[in-house]
Nucleic acid binder design. Structure first.
Lengths: 256, 256
DNA sequence: CAACTTATCGTCAAGTTAACGCAAACAGGC
DNA sequence: GCCTGTTTGCGTTAACTTGACGATAAGTTG
């Protein structure tokens, strides 16, 4: 928040052509966009909500949904609003958290636009909801091979990768996995979340013991559910824990 | 990055008086500032680098150092530049990471200014370096009682609290603690970092066993150092691990 | 040299994890 | 009805990790 701006600029040569050099340097302004990485599990695979861009730049390419922050609007409010407009989902009911901000010069050909990335977690819904802008939206399985190699428009590959990494890390110590599930769920469904996000196979027996041993993670409802095949499973709902103890450590995380 | 802006605004009543309603809504712009939470350990206590504001708003109040992003400049570059200008520290040599972005309407009385917070970790240096803007800077012990109760200008209490929480969490699973130390350090100095940041006492014997058991965390140099009192300690330098396994779990973290 | 301080090694009981055996409880085919 | 395949849920065991703490090493101070 310091307002003293020295009179030299070692990066003068990198200045965007949109803005003349000189005093305007001290008043460089940005539009700020919110981009949403909305994740869910579909058919046992991790999926992300994408829109197809209807106009340049990147016309016809897939991109993360998002929109600009309005005057008088907080970032979280913009994220909730965009989530509702683009997907029909009630943002306040979903897990939603800021990940980080991107403002690399030239990241958006339309000019200096900073993007604040948000991670959203949704249960497997019959999306996209028809109407409004949501018609352009579709769930797409996360393509780990194309991610990072020009899958999405703008720098959305990077944004999605960072959001994924946040989700992966947070599954370990926060009850984030339940946000992928409906109101009630089985331990097997919860395990499917971990397996899809971490891209690993977990032992059902050890997972069951571990999850039910974490205080406040899940609480049994007393109901049961008949899966398409196999023994009926006890239904659970989220507990009131905000952190997991003991943590659900990723197998082999960092182990060399 | 969607550019379709619906014609209604459910939060019209919240609009800042600075910006008229209507089409200008679609071109709301921000200046973007970087604010730095630069942490170090001084006299065994966690300290943060603060500046005293020389002009309104918040004249005379303590604040986090920072400055505005220039045209053609990436956020990380702004952080490195401000770190250098305000402290004389070579930013590229320090640990520096983005934490999150704040843009709550009215957070800065000068207008719509978004702030991207960065966390920096520095070893205990003879700071502040004289010259340039650094003369205004001073190390201040983190006042956990006043933090969150109007200690700092703007919303810097919130920013510092979030940066601290990031540092606390990251000590668990990343070799961040070594960034507080010099090129070489003893296990005792490393323990002092954990104790200062986590605000706990750790058993020296268990800590020693744990740290030296984490693969790639620290490597012995073969040298020794004579502390002011007590037995000489073996010197270590940082290893090449980027994640800690096993993690250095906070005692009682989340345990209820 | 005694007293004090910090570093380092070792022990042990309690808790946690990974691997895997096994019975329960469903659906579907015959 | 019975066998087969599947998933759930419970138990067992060896290996590992943690927390509490005893003991010794190797400096400095008085």
């Amino acid at each position: 928040m310091a307002e003293a701006i020295p009179d030299r600029d070692p990066r003068a040569g990198l200045r965007s052509g949109r803005y003349p050099s000189g005093v305007s340097d001290q008043r460089t302004v940005f539009r700020i966009a919110i981009d949403l990485a909305i994740l869910t599990i579909r058919d046992g695979r991790l999926a992300v909500l994408l829109i197809e861009r209807g106009k340049a730049p990147f016309e016809g390419r897939a991109a993360l949904p998002g929109g600009f922050v309005r005057a008088g609007e907080d970032l979280d409010d913009t994220a909730v609003r965009e989530l509702s407009e683009e997907t029909g989902l009630e943002g306040r009911a979903l897990h939603l958290e800021q990940v980080r901000t991107y403002a690399t010069p030239g990241r958006d050909p339309r000019g200096p636009i900073a993007s604040v990335a948000y991670l959203a977690i949704a249960p497997d819904l019959p999306m996209p909801v028809a109407g409004t802008d949501a018609a352009r939206a579709r769930w797409e399985p996360v393509d780990h091979d194309r991610l990072g190699h020009g899958w999405l428009a703008f720098d959305h590959d990077t944004i999605l990768a960072d959001a994924l990494e946040r989700a992966r890390a947070k599954l370990e110590y926060a009850p984030l996995a339940t946000a992928f599930c409906g109101e009630t769920f089985t331990i097997g469904e919860l395990r499917a979340v971990y397996e899809a996000v971490w891209q690993v196979r977990l032992d059902p027996r050890n997972f069951h013991r571990k999850v039910t041993g974490v205080s406040g993670f899940v609480v049994p409802t007393g109901e049961r559910r008949n899966p398409p095949t196999g023994r009926p499973a006890v239904l659970y709902r989220r507990g009131d824990a905000t952190m997991l103890y003991p943590a659900m450590l990723r197998p082999g995380s960092g182990r060399q």
